[in-house]
Each structure stands twice: as C-alpha cells, then as structure tokens.
Computed example of a mutant assay.
Amino acid sequence: MPDTKPLQFRQLKSACSNCSVLELCLPIGLSGQEVERLDALIVQRFKVRKGAALYREGDPLRSLYAVRLGSFKTNVLSVDGREQVTGFQIPGEMLGLDAISTDTHACNAFALEDSEVCPIHFTHLEKLAQQLPSLQHNLTKLLSREIVRDHDMLMLLGTMNSDERLAAFLLNLSQRLNQRGYSAKNFVLKMRREEIGSYLGLRLETICRGIAHLRDQGLVEISGRDVKIHNLEGLKQMIAGCHRPTLC
C-alpha cells in the first residue's frame, strides 16, 4: 500500500489488550482470551501520513481499520470533482464498514494528521465472529451505529439552522474527545473549516459567521484551529429539542 508506512518489525505486535482505546474499539466486552484471538488477526499496525489515502472509492474490501492514533476524514467526490465530507474518525473508531455490502469501498478515507491504524482482515474477522458471539455482537453494534449516524446527519441537515449545526458538531467532537481522556473544553480541530462546512452542508463564509456568532454569545472561542468552549451547557441548550446531542 503506497500511501502507508509499516512499523518496524519489533513494533508489529498490536497488543489489543494493552491499547489505550480498547474500551472504545471492537474488542469491547471481550474476555482476555477472546481479545488475544482478535489480536492475532492484526498482522501489523501501520502508519498513514497526513494527507495520504488509507483506501479509495472502488478499492476492494480487504480489511476493517481501527484508528489507534490520529484522525481521518471520509469523503466522496462528485462527477465534477467537488468534495462531500461524510465523516471524521478519531481513535477507537472503525473505518471500512462502507465496503461490507458490496465488497468495495463507497468512499475515500484520508488521514487528517500522521495517524496509525490496526487493520483487521475482514474474511478472517467474519470467521472468528462466528466462533465468538460477543465479537459478532460488537460487529452488529458497529453497523447499527453507522445507521444511527446517518439518521442523525439527516436530522441535523433537515431541522437545524447553520449556527445550531456548528454547535452540534463542536459539542459532539467535545464529547467524543472527552470519552478518550482529553479535555472537553480545549482541543484542536484537525480538519479545515472548508471540510467542516462540507460535512455540515454549509459554505465557508457561513462557517466563519457561525464561529463569530458563537463567540459573541460567549459559548465558544475558535482561534485558528484551537477551540475553547466557555459554556458547554449553553451549547447543549442551543440544540436542545431539535436534535440528539450525540451526533458522531
């Protein structure tokens, strides 16, 4: 895979049982012995440089990828080359689920920063899941989460104004980062504002105005890519009643 960089041999063992995002990833709920069997499927972790593709639309399904370090975006391109961002993935989340139905990827996945993934060969994973009901249950939950994510996105685009969409995005990212032990109020955006706009269905100038509006209300201050949330409860109240605050 030309866009990726394998780790050195001494680093190849993935050690799911010692991973910092184990509780958020595919092995959740598995026993120690079951985690070891899943760990054996991960031949090697590998790094993906910033801007490089993990996979592209039309590539055959080979593996699912657990994000261990860094972050990614998924997107699709229109016939005339316009980008539509479909999601952002951070440690503990899975990439590649889009290919399960047709055995080919329906989108592109690019690293937003220097990142690292754990590839899990899908055919081997299916066979192991048949032997481990807990693993099969986790796979089903992952697929269900994708469906819920799509429903949430449709709700966001259909019922929220531009400021509410931006507030929901920042609140969701805050919650996901906090689950991973990071600050809920101070973090760095790995994606560009144009990419956020594409994901939320908003123009760049609308995103910029929304950032100014949130600042003027004393809710959030964004300088460059540095985010400081001054009022989490205010953000929650802003979108209360129009959408579940757990969009991911």
Rank of each mutant, 00 (worst) to 15 (best):
E146G: 02
N138F: 07
L157F: 07
R165Q: 11
Y182E: 00
T123V: 14
L173K: 03
N172I: 00
C248G: 03
M155A: 15
N231R: 13
M153K: 15
G234S: 00
L97H: 01
L132F: 09
E146I: 08
I211T: 00
P91R: 06
G234D: 01
P119C: 06
D216V: 12
G70C: 00
T102M: 13
N231E: 03
H121T: 00
R209V: 02
F88V: 08
M238P: 04
A167R: 10
T206K: 12
A167L: 08
F72V: 04
R145L: 10
R82N: 02
E116M: 15
C19A: 14
A129S: 08
E195Y: 12
Q11I: 10
Q84N: 05
L232M: 15
E93R: 14
S17C: 12
S174E: 01
T123G: 07
P2S: 03
L12P: 07
R225W: 12
A106L: 14
E34Q: 15
N18S: 07
A168R: 10
A240E: 00
L166W: 00
R165N: 06
S162D: 05
F122A: 08
S31V: 03
I239C: 07
P60S: 05
F46Y: 15
L41P: 07
S31A: 01
D3E: 12
L77C: 04
T206D: 06
N108D: 05
N138L: 10
Q131F: 13
L77E: 07
A40F: 06
G92V: 03
F110C: 14
E164S: 09
A212D: 10
G218H: 10
G92K: 09
L173T: 04
N178P: 12
L171R: 15
R49P: 07
L235M: 14
R82C: 08
N18I: 08
K141E: 08
L97C: 03
L69A: 04
S198L: 11
L38A: 07
F122K: 08
L142Q: 04
L128Y: 12
S101F: 09
Q179F: 05
S63C: 09
I196M: 09
T159K: 15
